[in-house]
Design a binder for these strands. Structure first.
Length: 105
DNA sequence: AGTATGACGTCTC
DNA sequence: AGAGACGCCATAC
């Protein structure tokens, strides 16, 4: 059994460009006991040298809850925007359509 | 070994 | 709609 974080990283890396997923969905797909672990792993991934498209992971409401943890608060939205994801007022506009279910990966 | 801490989720006010 | 309370459980200290 590999470390929790690594499992989360691998799954997030599978997220197609221009799509987004949620912490809860990741937790469910990985059978994580709680969604907090997904977020915790993401935060740790940033301090680690792991390259993970963390900007594609948002909370259940499509909010960019992790934006504050990026080098700059606007970086997350910029990255998403550059992939064709519309971000308005700190949340994904077409979250319902852009949502990518990690369980179907 | 015990306490504190969350890039969450859901309910309540 | 916005804000606060609580449950969740692996890591960090």
């Amino acid at each position: 059994m590999r470390p929790y974080f690594e499992q989360v990283y691998d799954l997030v890396r599978l997220c197609p460009r221009g799509r987004v997923t949620t912490y809860g969905a990741l937790a469910d797909a990985l059978l994580l006991p709680s969604a907090r672990m997904a977020g915790y792993a993401m935060r740790h991934s940033f301090v680690s040298d792991v390259s993970v498209p963390a900007h594609r992971v948002v909370n259940a409401a499509g909010r960019l809850s992790g934006a504050d943890h990026f080098p700059t608060p606007t970086m997350m939205a910029e990255l998403l925007a550059s992939e064709g994801v519309r971000v308005e007022r700190g949340r994904v506009a077409d979250f319902g359509e852009l949502f990518w279910d990690p369980a179907t990966a």
